[in-house]
Design a protein around this nucleic acid. Structure first.
Length: 478
RNA sequence: GCCCCCAUCGGCUAGCGGCCUAGGCCUCCGCCCUUUCAAGGCGGCAACACGGGUUCGAAUCCCGUUGGGGGUACCA
């Protein structure tokens, strides 16, 4: 095989939301193209007119953009190239590599049922393989519109050397003649896919393992057309926690959902790369440039992998912490805007608060609940408040904290900490006993950013106000 | 039914005949730190599916079994 520069492609069918499995395939193709200095072609396989939608195309484009996966050619749509497939199919018919098939769906179904019962492989019988001109004319006269079938030579076997699976072979007798052009003239995947790959000069086909068994048919098209064959790399499937094919049943399955939950694109690239590929025995957290530099097909593994949200979440925390503080604030702001959060309006505040939450969040979506009290009135969690009300030391804690905070001269984290620790000594209360009620008083919850930083951001007046408000509840309820 | 692929801790994986009393990461469980939570530090539980071979030696090679996945469409 002559050396050609690497050219890969990502050909989703726009029939729904872009799945994490498809995204992983897109990522691998992109990483391979970038790693090798090759190019990536984006193509929408929309020959299933019933299920393909423009919305799905737009959505895929948006996801790819968000993921930072860019392409060098396209996007092209197969429905824009219909005449091309028609011409090539016609050529194959003329050359004898394909023929018109007049069988109806009902006839085909009946045939299949028979074979099923006889425990035979479910392939087309070849009934229309060698029709005479008279027979064809008769069918036409009946009003039947033919589909075009590829004449698959049943002799011998098809062998490929898959880049991840090694040698894989199939008995050609078990392939059967497959349809390349439906009776309405629209090409099938088995045909349009290789035709486009040939036209684009694709050198490597990296795709999901679910497409492995369609390889012999596509290769047959390459051969019939006398085109140079690509190298194949079939990637392991991504499974749900129950080891079944990942689907909506398993929860979030589209990339967009993870984006909306507050995952970083950087995290998705890192995580997706790790299902089915590894750099070595100890590297987990990788930036995208590192991924590009390190990605090779040789290290792609063969076995299917389970999509593990827990690890994805952990990894997102890692990437959040890796962000330079300014970038973190930007990501946070962008996320809040995109998700329509009211907090997004106060950009300055977001920038102020960002530093105190950067090392605590795992996903950006936690921000509102975590730091919302710094943007407006605290939302009091009943359980947290109950904890304070049940605490016999709480009134004293709130009181002494109030006094200490009143005395603070410079309202900064250091001075506040000093003052509150002083209050601990005066009252003899342990830090956790004294700080706990204060935290709940100002934030409404037990889980929040650092106490001192929060007090600084809230300001003295508001802080004291909130502490007093909670204190008053002892009079009423306590 | 038929064809193809796969098989290491609960999950992601390292391992490409001796370096393996099987390593890393996530999860989980302890402990430490501490201002709750988170983060961080330390430690722990936990796997070569099974059965035959080959070999001086097998997680690594071969065969079979079992299990899982995919395909078998005028879907892609």
């Amino acid at each position: 095989m002559p050396e050609r520069p690497v050219k890969v492609r990502f050909p989703p069918s726009p029939t729904g939301l872009l799945h994490v499995g498809s995204a992983r395939t897109a990522l691998y193709n992109w990483l391979y193209a970038r790693h090798t200095g090759g190019s990536l072609v984006l193509r929408f396989e929309d020959t299933d007119r019933a299920r393909s939608t423009d919305d799905a195309v737009d959505q895929a484009l948006r996801v790819l953009e968000w993921l930072g996966i860019d392409w060098d050619e396209g996007p092209i749509r197969q429905t824009e190239r219909l005449p091309v497939y028609g011409e090539i199919a016609e050529r194959l018919v003329t050359e004898g590599s394909a023929y018109r098939c007049y069988c109806t769906t009902q006839e085909l179904d009946a045939e299949r049922k028979q074979r099923q019962a006889a425990q035979l492989p479910l392939i087309y019988s070849g009934r229309c393989r060698d029709l005479t001109d008279e027979q064809r004319a008769a069918f036409e006269a009946e009003g039947r519109t033919p589909a075009v079938r590829f004449r698959f030579d049943p002799a011998g076997e098809t062998v490929i050397e898959d880049m991840v699976r090694g040698v894989v072979q199939w008995d050609n007798a078990l392939q059967g003649d497959f349809i390349i052009l439906r009776s309405d003239g629209i090409p099938t995947y088995q045909f349009a896919n290789p035709v486009d790959d040939i036209d684009a000069g694709i050198t490597h086909v990296l795709r999901g393992e679910d497409l492995l068994s369609s390889t012999p048919r596509q290769l047959a098209v390459y051969r019939a057309l006398g085109a140079p064959e690509p190298l194949f790399a079939h990637l392991p499937m991504i499974l749900g926690p129950d080891k079944k094919r990942l689907s909506k049943r398993h929860g979030a399955v589209s990339v967009e959902e993870y984006r909306d939950l507050g995952y970083l694109a950087e995290t998705m690239r890192n995580y997706l790369a790790l299902i089915g590929w590894s750099f070595d025995d100890k590297t987990t957290v990788m930036t995208t440039p590192e991924l590009v530099e390190r990605f090779t097909i040789e290290r792609v593994n063969r076995s299917p992998g389970v999509f593990d949200v827990a690890k994805l979440e952990w990894l997102n925390g890692e990437h959040l912490r890796l962000l330079e503080p300014g970038r973190f604030a930007e990501e946070l702001q962008a996320y809040l805007e995109r998700s329509g959060s009211p907090l997004a309006a106060d950009r300055e505040r977001v920038a102020e608060v960002a530093p105190v939450v950067q090392d605590k969040l795992r996903v950006l979506g936690q921000f509102e609940g975590f730091a919302g009290f710094l943007f407006g009135p605290a939302v009091y969690d009943d359980e947290a408040v109950g904890r304070v009300l049940d605490d016999p030391d709480a009134p004293r804690a709130l009181e002494s904290a109030t006094e200490a905070l009143r005395r603070v001269v410079e309202w900064d984290a250091g001075s506040i900490e000093e003052a509150l620790r002083g209050a601990c000594e005066e009252t003899g209360l342990k830090p956790r006993v004294l700080f706990g009620p204060v935290r709940i008083a100002i934030s409404g919850r037990t889980v929040a950013p650092g106490l001192f930083e929060s007090l600084v951001l809230l300001g003295r007046e508001e802080s004291l106000e909130r502490i007093a408000t909670l204190g008053r509840r002892f009079a009423v309820e306590g």
